[in-house]
Amino acid sequence: MNANHGDPGVVQLLGQELRIRDAMNRRVVTISSRTPMSELRPTLRAHRIAGIPVMDDGKLVGVISVEDMVNWITDGAVACPVAERMTRSPRALYADETLVHAINEFRKFGFFHFPVLDRDSGEVVGVVTREDVIQCLLKRLEIDYHEEGIRHYRASHIFEDIVADKSALLFHYYIIGQDFEKAGSSSSGLKKTLQRLGIHPDIVRRVAIATYEAEMNTVIYARTGELIAKVDTNQIRVEIEDFGPGIPDIAAALKPGFSTAPDWVRNLGFGAGMGLGNIQNCADEMNITSTVGKGIHLEITIAINKERVKYETKKDR
C-alpha cells in the first residue's frame, strides 16, 4: 500500500495555510536604543534569546543580536548605547503573512529571528524564530493527523498483520433507488475507508468518482442496488449491481452524450450521458453487462500496484 506519510506536499500546504501569528511568540521583550550595551547581556541571558527588537516610543527602530554584542566585545567593549551597535531599519515580518514566507525570509537573510508587526497598526506584536516555525508546523501536523493517523496506521498495516497466502477486504454497501438525499453516501463511505487504509489519494479519488457515477445511475434508474468493493494489496475491484430496467444497448449507452435521463435528473446537473465515460476514464478496467428488465452488473478495477496486477489477475483466472 502506498502510505501517505512524509508527503512533502502536506507541509507545503500547511505552510501556506498557517500564518506567522500562529507561530510567533507574543511575549515580546524589547529594549530602548538608549540602553547601554553593557546591560544587553543580562537581558539576553535572562530571556534565553538571541536577539531583541529595539523600540523607541513604541516604534521599532532596530534589532540587536548576540552577534552584535560579540562584535562589540571584540571591538573593545567601549561604553555606548545600543543605538550605536544595532541593525537599523530591521527586516520585519507581518503577522498575517504565511509561514512559507517566513521560511523563505529566514533562508534569504540567514537570520534566526524576526520582529513581527501588525499590518494595520505597525506595532510589534511578537517575535518569530526558526524554531517557532518548526514547532508550529509539528504541532499542527500532530493535531491534524493524530486521530486520523492512528486509524490510518492501524488500517494500513492490516495486510502486513494477516497471515495468509492471499487476502482481501470486502466492503458492502446498499443503494436505494430514487433516494436523492442518501445518494452518494456509499461512495463517500468507501472513499473514507480507502483513505484510512492508506491508499494513495489519487487512486482513492479515481475510485470515488467511478463509484459515485455508478451509484448515481443506480439511484436515478433502479429500485435498489449493491456496491461491493474488494481491496487487496494490488487492486481495488468494485462491483455494482442494480435491480432496475437495465440497458438494452450497451454500446449505445457508452457513447458520450447518450442519455435517457428524465428532465428532473438533468435539472440537477446529471444525465448528460457522461457517467459511463467518466467511470471508464477513472478505471483501469471496466466491464458492464445488463439484462433488460432485471438490471445492470458493472465491474470496475483500479490498480494500486500496477506492475503486480497482471500477475494477480492471471492467477485469479
Partner: peptide, 21 residues
C-alpha cells in the same frame, strides 16, 4: 484538489461531488 466550485445548483449533490473530487 482544493478547488472552489462555483455553481448555480444548490442541492445536496453539489457537496457530494465536491467531496468526491
Amino acid at each position: 484538489e482544493k478547488a472552489i466550485l462555483l455553481t448555480n445548483l444548490t442541492h445536496l449533490q453539489t457537496v457530494r461531488v465536491a467531496e468526491m473530487v
